[in-house]
């Protein structure tokens, strides 16, 4: 059975880590990592692993229209706005890892099946992937969340130039996801780039204000969804169980990565990349099942 063919656009920290992870997928084949400079650390690493590379950017895909079925865009929000119409014209499935927010916001443990119809899916942000499942569990157990706030800290060294340029988009996109998944009236996202050495692990704290906090129900909903997340990202862990602190519900998670491109502290790469791969595998499974027995409806 043929795998779904994928190309990764953008050879920064996120794109390179993603290309390495794709090599392990039983459903996906990494047909290339495309950057803009052959001397970049990302392309050099990919080459050393035998992944085809190109420095031609989006032109590589335009010049090789049959090279892939799905494109992961790990460039920047501004670049994705340029890439999206080109890829749409070419009929590619697009998984957008920038905070460009063109397609529906997707967090696999929450709404994977709702997103598989869309030709362009947005993976929110690293902080959004870490916090949205918690926001969702809060929303499932509280119908009157006034405010939700998410503070993520990541190691400075894990934030490349595009991530830094996209800080405002990161915040706006994460806030949109928090509201969507929790139903809260107001949301705030904060990102700290921490220069501490040795590098700190990715950590995310979620605060919620609600007049009738139900810690027990929330904890039980949370544990269920955390088990689902751990199926595709084992390094996702609750380090502060839900508790009332100063009249607000506080929950804290840590994400340890596999250490594919950057060391394990850079869980921010893993949390968004594993989510993106879960979406692509969702496409692949459905397409392959559909092709084998056209009458079979896919139930996931």
């Amino acid at each position: 059975m043929s795998k779904l063919r994928a190309v990764v656009l953008g050879s920064g920290n996120i794109g390179t880590d993603l290309a390495i992870k794709l090599m392990r997928s039983p459903w996906l084949e990494c047909r290339g990592l495309v950057g803009r400079s052959l001397t970049s650390a990302g392309l050099a690493k990919a080459q050393s692993l035998g992944i085809p590379v190109s420095a031609n950017g989006i032109a590589f895909i335009e010049n090789h229209p049959d090279s892939c079925d799905v494109v992961f865009d790990a460039t920047s929000a501004a670049s994705h706005h340029e890439h999206a119409p080109v890829l749409e014209r070419m009929g590619k499935l697009v998984i957008d890892l920038t905070p460009a927010k063109i397609g529906p916001l997707c967090v696999p443990s929450v709404n994977l099946n709702d997103c598989l119809e869309a030709p362009n899916v947005n993976m929110v942000t690293c902080g959004g992937q870490a916090s949205s499942p918690i926001a969702y569990a809060l929303g499932q157990t509280h119908d009157d969340i006034e405010y939700i706030e998410v503070v993520s800290s990541i190691a400075s060294r894990s934030a490349g130039p595009a991530t830094r340029r996209n800080l405002d988009e990161y915040i706006h996109t994460t806030e949109a996801a928090l509201k969507k998944f929790s139903g809260a009236q107001n949301a705030k996202a904060i990102l700290n780039l921490n220069p501490a050495v040795p590098c700190i692990n990715m950590q995310t704290t979620v605060f919620a204000k609600t007049p009738n906090p139900d810690i027990e129900a929330f904890t039980s909903a949370l544990n269920k969804i955390v088990a689902e997340i751990q199926a595709y990202i084992p390094g996702y862990e609750i380090i502060l169980q839900p508790r009332l602190d100063n009249g607000r519900i506080a929950t804290m998670v840590r994400v340890i990565g596999r250490g594919d491109f950057l060391p394990a502290y850079a869980g921010n790469l893993d949390i968004i990349n594993c989510a993106a791969i879960a979406v692509a595998e969702g496409y692949a499974q459905r397409r392959i099942v559909d092709a084998d027995s056209p009458k079979l409806r896919v139930v996931q």
Partner: peptide, 16 residues
């Protein structure tokens, strides 16, 4: 741990 402003959430973890 080399904390920086904005990491006040770590106080809870350290205290625990």
């Amino acid at each position: 741990r080399g904390v920086v402003a904005g990491q006040e959430d770590l106080i809870l973890e350290v205290a625990q």
